[in-house]
Design a protein around this nucleic acid. Structure first.
Length: 618
RNA sequence: GGGGGCGUAGCUCAGUUGGUUAGAGCGCUGCCCUGUCACGGCAGAGGCCGAGGGUUCGAGUCCCUUCGCUCCCGCCA
């Protein structure tokens, strides 16, 4: 065991002039050939015992590494050593000696030496382990979380957590070098109407009123800019009461929260991009990092990748091939196109997928996803006109038109999605990813970043039949304020077509963060909310403080907030946030180790003026 | 709230078309072993097969219900 991120510990200060430190003269990763002959003292966990009867080896482990300690029947500590079991914490005194020739362990930094034990002290015996620390077997989440401290002793998790700390150190340093200053903002704050469900904290002093934990320090960081501090950052805890995913912790997570005054979108990009690139180059294990993050407009991302968080390591780009099918012999698509001018046929090229087995596999995958199927054409030797039922239906000329448009040749295939893009774009994006994975087209071992820009400001809410903010209501509309203020409800075309100065950073298909140039003008803010159907009283009630601040000298400002946990996850090569969070909750937002959430006493409830009204148990 | 997967020894898993006494590895207990580093050898303990109900002469296995974990959808500006 040797934790990659662990450095050695200077133990000089532990050693008094009168003799040895109570627990150790050296850590378990410190001893080398140059220490041979020294009397040493180490403390740590019994990692592994190998008992040969006459000679007994113990791997002693601590945060810094692993040393082999040895006892034989001549040692006064032999009897004590025979008693030791895995994960007992012991102090060992002994003499460092060279391992006999041929028994060195080149896999260990301490593998040239061993410590011959003269004395053992039990510091912390351990009972039967619910979760063995030794080995790399997988264990159920429930046990891992309940005994998190045992799981954390294991090499991989221990190294991930150390790496997380190093990454955060590096981020802080880079931010400070970039002229940013770190602030702390309140944890107990006011509930905010937009966004996710809040975590609420009842107020004892104000019966019936509640604090909310911040979903993000969004308003605070903007207020900090209005307060004139110019460049803010914080490794900020954020709390959202929403359901978990593998890459989304329930309850709480951390963001690198950033805000800047007097900036354009490009200024934010220029400040953030080097920090992220630098961190990924420093901790990415040598994997190449995008040298200059490309900017992809939201509409282009949706059209070419079928998602607003494209994995651009996958080279496949989708195209509109409606013209090849309009009025063609393939009646299903021809009819779809004729039915509504909004309908389109999109092609998902699959270079190298030109065989029936693959096409059929994709087709049945699509059916498993709840689709009627996935139309395809493929080209193989001797069938340059295209094979598959769909190709036969539309004929040679149209097939060739599709191949030419997409640059496909013999050995390739193409899949199709048809209908209103609004309805199939998500599935098309999934199919694009599936094709890339199946054909091994995704360049692993890279960190491919991109900016997604020009998000729509508004969207039409089909359920409520009204215009809604499509993202953050605090974003600045990308329109001259004078023109924006003149907008009329009848300009719905213009309103739904307009963009916000809002952007995302995406790495390898994972959304790392979202940001915006903020709307710092109260008149534009009022208008923006009016368009979404909120009158001034609502705005005043929910965002009164913010509105007042904007009215008393607010600088143009903007920012972004990359997710720390997801950054660490990518850099540790982990698929699940629980592998990079010290004490995570399970998917149902329970802390199995501490027993949270828990019931509280009637007295506590009385003080808070709260009476429970629990759902009926079946 | 909805869908998929999983649930058998402390842990990881196997368990045939339903058939007698449910197996293996790791761990644990005991014995043997002086150069291992996933040490080795022998012996042993350890099971409400997640729970409840049903079908059957007979259920770990088939059916229904339910609970737990997990992944996904919804949700997450």
């Amino acid at each position: 065991m040797c934790f990659s991120a662990a450095s050695s510990l200077n133990l000089q200060r532990f050693v008094g002039t009168s003799g040895m430190h109570r627990y150790r003269s050296h850590t378990c990763g410190a001893l080398r050939e140059s220490d041979i002959g020294k009397d040493v003292r180490m403390s740590g966990w019994v990692h592994r015992v190998r008992d040969h009867g006459g000679v007994l080896f113990i791997d002693l482990r601590d945060h810094y590494g692993l040393s082999q300690v040895v006892a034989d029947p001549d040692s006064p500590a032999f009897k004590a050593a025979e008693k030791l079991r895995a994960e007992w914490v012991v102090r060992v005194d002994g003499k460092v000696r060279r391992r006999p020739s041929g028994t060195e362990n080149p896999d260990l930094p301490t593998g040239q030496i061993e410590v011959y034990i003269t004395e053992i002290e039990e510091l912390g015996p351990a009972g039967d382990l619910p979760l063995p620390v030794f080995g790399d077997q997988e264990y159920p989440e429930e046990i891992r979380l309940k005994y998190r401290f045992l799981d954390l002793r294991r090499d991989r998790l221990h190294a991930n957590i150390m790496k997380r700390g190093a990454i955060i150190d590096s981020i802080r340093r880079r931010m400070k070098d970039g002229g940013f200053f770190e602030f702390q903002t309140p944890i107990l704050t006011a509930s905010s109407p937009e966004g996710a469900r809040d975590y609420l904290v009842p107020s004892r002093i104000h019966p019936g009123k509640f604090y909310a934990l911040p979903q993000a320090p969004q308003q605070f960081k903007q207020l900090t800019m209005i307060a004139g501090f110019d460049r803010y950052f914080q490794i900020a805890p954020c709390f959202r009461d929403e359901d978990a995913r593998a890459d989304r912790s329930p309850g709480e997570f951390y963001q690198l929260d950033i805000e800047m005054s007097f900036v354009t979108q490009q200024d934010v990009f220029d400040a953030v991009e080097p920090v992220l690139r630098g961190v990924f180059e420093e901790f990415g294990g040598g994997k190449p990092v995008t040298p200059k993050f490309p900017m992809i407009p939201y509409a282009v991302a949706m059209r070419e990748y079928g998602t607003d968080k494209p994995d651009v390591r996958n080279p496949i780009k989708m195209q509109n091939v409606s013209e090849a099918f309009r009025g063609s012999g393939f009646k299903i698509f021809a009819n779809i196109l004729a039915a509504d001018p909004k309908n389109e046929v999109w092609a998902i090229p699959a270079p190298g997928g030109g065989n029936r087995a693959f096409a059929d596999r994709m087709n049945s995958w699509a059916q498993g996803e709840g689709q009627p199927g996935l139309g395809y054409i493929f080209w193989r030797e001797g069938e340059e006109g295209g094979a598959g039922p769909l190709g036969k239906n539309i004929g040679l000329e149209r097939t060739k038109q599709i191949a030419d448009q997409l640059g496909l040749k013999v050995g390739d295939a193409v899949f199709f999605a048809a209908g209103n893009p609004k309805n199939f774009v998500k599935f098309a994006g999934t199919a694009r990813t599936k094709v890339g994975e199946e054909l091994n087209l995704i360049a692993k071992d890279r960190f491919d970043f991109c900016w997604i820009v020009d998000f729509p400001m508004y969207e039409f809410n089909e359920e409520e039949k009204k215009i809604d903010f499509s993202h953050n209501p605090f974003s600045m509309p990308n329109m001259e304020p004078e023109d924006f203020l003149k907008l009329d409800p009848s300009d719905s075309e213009k309103i739904l077509g307009m963009k916000a100065i809002q952007y995302d950073i995406v790495c390898n298909g994972i959304e790392l963060s979202s940001g915006a140039i903020r709307n710092h003008r109260p008149d534009v803010m009022k208008k923006a909310f009016a368009i979404a159907g909120y009158d001034e009283e609502v705005l005043e009630e929910k965002f009164g403080g913010m509105l007042r601040a904007l009215s008393l000298g607010a600088p143009p400002h903007g920012g972004i907030a990359p997710g720390i946990d997801r950054i660490v996850m990518l850099l540790c090569g982990e698929e699940n946030l629980r592998e990079v969070v010290l004490y995570p909750m399970n998917q149902r937002a329970e802390d199995l180790m501490m027993g949270a959430p828990s019931e509280v006493s009637p007295k506590q409830l009385r003080e808070l003026h709260i009476r429970l009204n629990l759902p009926d148990k079946k």
